[in-house]
Amino acid sequence: MTALLESVAFNEEGFLLNPNDWTPELAQEIAAQEGIELTDKHWEIINFCREKGLETGAAPTLRQITKGTGISTKELFALFPKGPAKKVAKIAGLGKPEGCV
């Protein structure tokens, strides 16, 4: 754990407790922990999720992400391998996605 990761609180599933603690630097470190190096495409998704999440109070579902960003399902799963639903929300500092689609 880096000093930055230690300075903020996560719940037992690894989601940031307070979305206001989120910073782009923190996102980078959470992503690194998940084994993901963030590119511009990743940021496009993260920024969309931040915006949506803060507006609605809930992490967007995968379908909302693909519809909202125009990024295909295939690409989304390639950018965030092995379970983008949780990974995107974690990196974007949002809670666990509640929607089913």
């Binding site: 995968l62 799963f77 391998p81 092995k82 379970g83 983008p84 639903a85 949780k86 996605p97 089913c100 689609v101």
Partner: peptide
Amino acid sequence: IMGWAALGNG
């Protein structure tokens, strides 16, 4: 629905 949820969780 369950398949999609499973894929989303890796």
